[in-house]
Write a protein that binds this DNA or RNA. Structure first.
Lengths: 156, 156
DNA sequence: GCTAAGCTTGAAGTGCTGTTTAAGGTCAAG
DNA sequence: CTTGACCTTAAACAGCACTTCAAGCTTAGC
């Protein structure tokens, strides 16, 4: 059918939006269910009718994912779909993510230097146990509990 | 009971090893089940009898975790507990981990510059959509599929 | 009119890692 | 006798982003 919507553009069915964005239909429904995408209008048959802007919205979601945001974070900084977008909120979200990244970079840098140091020691003398004190080095960088997984460095 | 073991040292029960290493008893059993810790000898009552060296072994496991190794990786580089420790294998494992770290650092650096760039654009003019092209920047750094989570930067 | 593709829903399953918890039983010390 | 540490196996949890399934409607093409 491809009816026209109030804005005048051609409405997209979920499959078309999926094709246009490279996101699966199930993922799109998932986004909608979790408030990332906004509830699409429905045609008489119950099919979702996406306005053309939805393509951009999905693009933003994917961009945010590539920048390492979790969907929950995307949700909180992008806000309700269709709403004006809160500039303050977005800036704050971006900066918060920058902070996370820097934190992870610090962790990785500590691990990197720890490993490098360890390699040096091992090449000098073969005592793995002599590397145990490295633990302290890492503790200094991060914190002091049992090794809990921190956060992913999501890719692409 | 605290019987003596063949090596002459005092044997540790699981709770004692847990206390000595800061690892829970359940985690220790988990390590054993997954071949990280080696099956402890058993006292007449079925209790595990850990030799004192086990403390160091667990320390190494925890150190490796802090360096970001998964338990599976720890298993493959540390090898069978009680065995001589394959130097080549360990060096290779450390270097492989260094490679992973560098990969993650590259991803994070790309995300960081992407975000910074985005912040700049947004402060100049408020068009979020003008940031969509950043996706390409990130694609260049990492690869070309849908945003799949990469790996954690485990901490401490 | 039939079939295949596309749409609907909600619930459940997937994959990965590292534990933790539960349930039911044994053992040793006070 | 009671308590606490230990034993076993199996299952649950937690976080994340989806995917798959089941069951049933719609629609387009032939």
């Amino acid at each position: 059918m491809n009816a026209n919507n109030p804005a005048g553009g051609a409405a997209l069915r979920i499959g078309e939006l999926a094709a246009a964005t490279g996101v699966s239909t199930s993922a799109l429904r998932f986004y909608e269910k979790h408030g990332l995408l906004g509830k699409a209008a429905r045609a008489g048959n119950g099919y979702r009718q996406y306005p053309p802007e939805a393509v951009e919205r999905v693009g933003l979601i994917r961009l945010a994912q590539r920048l390492g945001f979790s969907l929950e974070q995307v949700h909180s900084i992008l806000g309700r779909p269709g709403e004006p977008l809160d500039h303050e909120q977005i800036l704050a979200g971006l900066q918060a993510r920058l902070g996370e990244i820097e934190q992870m970079q610090a962790t990785l840098a500590a691990q990197h230097s720890g490993l490098t140091c360890m390699l040096g020691k091992l090449q000098a003398q073969w005592q793995l146990s002599s590397c145990l004190p490295l633990a302290r080095l890492l503790d200094g960088e991060t914190a002091a509990e049992p090794p809990t997984a921190q956060r992913k460095a999501s890719a692409r």
